[in-house]
Design a protein around this nucleic acid. Structure first.
Lengths: 141, 141
DNA sequence: ATTACGAATGAGAATGATTAGCATTAGCAT
DNA sequence: ATGCTAATGCTAATCATTCTCATTCGTAAT
């Protein structure tokens, strides 16, 4: 299933900006990108898309299930390619590096916690804020 | 330990706006309040504080450890009184009602997940988004 | 009590991320 | 090739939050 098929099945026309944004995520150099990140990367590669369009496209892709949106600590949100595998995130407070993880026990206990209190779990967000080991930390002062 | 002592020990002068804000939280009618909420409630009770002051005071209280700040889904952040007991939150997507919970297993698995990946856990945020049972849901369409 | 000085406040401007409005342009089915 | 609608790209608007700065308040020493 290629980019074009992805768009089609989401009921979205295959336009230049959309293809550009999608392939940026699929190229996979960086998994987590903010709207601003995407905008700058496109400009840098000579592709001339408006910032507003980037925001619109990202949100459409999220609705369509192609991307997932996250709100790490701070103001701006980031998007990542939806590859079907739910996972949570560990974010380094120093360098911002993000690592993904999945813990079945945590998932299950969440469902339980909700159920015990009369809630029907719909969704959740779990972010661990931590510090990398120095060897991996990309912090540049 | 009363309000005044709280402020003193945080190195904050005992001023009218600060006492007002603090007692709002301590009165406990609603546990989770946004800056806007606090501002409106104070105005409503005839206390004339500026919105900027509310923001400042809330942040100072957070730094001082009197309040804890949360970012539920959506844009604005909410504060609650810090009573020393860490807990996570379940938020109803319909009515916005918030219920608190604590699960030792989840806490422990988080620490483990971080450690296994070479992170030193500093903090975390876990929000469960769900739907109340109809009997409790305060949703008004 | 009075003074004096720095901290705190209030009002409004400024910021930063995100969205809305609208005229122009580009997909795509005919 | 044509036409219609959806998509784009500006720019202006919004919303929460922070900053600026002149004025006022709290407090510790007189």
């Amino acid at each position: 299933m290629n980019e074009l098929t992805h768009l089609k099945s989401a009921g979205l026309k295959s336009t230049l900006p959309r293809l550009k944004v999608l392939s940026l995520f699929e190229s996979g150099s960086e998994r987590h990108l903010s709207a601003e990140d995407v905008y700058k990367k496109l400009l840098a590669s000579g592709d001339d898309v408006g910032l507003a369009t980037v925001y619109r496209v990202l949100n459409q892709f999220e609705q369509a299930g192609l991307l997932v949106k996250h709100h790490f600590e701070g103001d701006k949100s980031v998007f990542e390619l939806n590859q079907g595998d739910h996972h949570d995130h560990i974010v380094c407070l120093q360098c911002g590096r993000v690592e993904e993880f999945f813990d079945a026990t945590i998932e299950q206990r969440q469902k339980k916690a909700a159920a015990e209190r009369g809630f029907e779990l719909h969704d959740h967000s779990l972010y661990i804020y931590a510090n990398c080991v120095k060897s991996k930390c990309q912090y540049r002062s």
